[in-house]
């Protein structure tokens, strides 16, 4: 049931703070563990690229967007709960398969 195609993720963080670091690490870890070789992770600092934040309608930070496959899914927070992140990204079955 898992999508065999690549998964495109975009992570918006606000500056280089501790929470941002923690979030980035968490996302990288999840991706390496569950989507090895078939994911694309883009990390955007909204301070650096506010136009991108506006384009994607980003309000909360940090927030992770699953850009592909559609539909777009969003998950806000520091993403420490791996299970919830996977469920939210609809990736949980892929890990089990």
């Amino acid at each position: 049931m898992s999508a065999p195609g690549p998964v495109a993720l975009r992570l918006f963080i606000a500056g280089p703070g501790a929470r941002s670091q923690r979030t980035v690490e968490s996302v990288r870890r999840i991706c390496e563990a569950h989507l090895p070789g078939r994911h694309e992770l883009e990390i955007v600092d909204i301070y650096q690229q506010p136009a991108l934040a506006e384009r994607d309608g980003v309000l909360a930070a940090p927030i992770l967007l699953r850009v592909a496959p559609l539909p777009v899914r969003r998950i806000a927070g520091d993403l420490q709960d791996e299970g919830r992140v996977l469920r939210a990204l609809d990736l949980a079955p892929a890990e089990e398969a």
């Binding site: 606000a14 929470r19 979030t23 909360a60 930070a61 940090p62 927030i63 899914r73 969003r74 998950i75 806000a76 927070g77 520091d78 993403l79 420490q80 709960d81 919830r84 992140v85 939210a88």
Partner: peptide, 8 residues
């Protein structure tokens, strides 16, 4: 929007 953990 799903929420997990702290954000602002």
């Amino acid at each position: 929007i799903e929420e997990t953990g702290e954000y602002d």
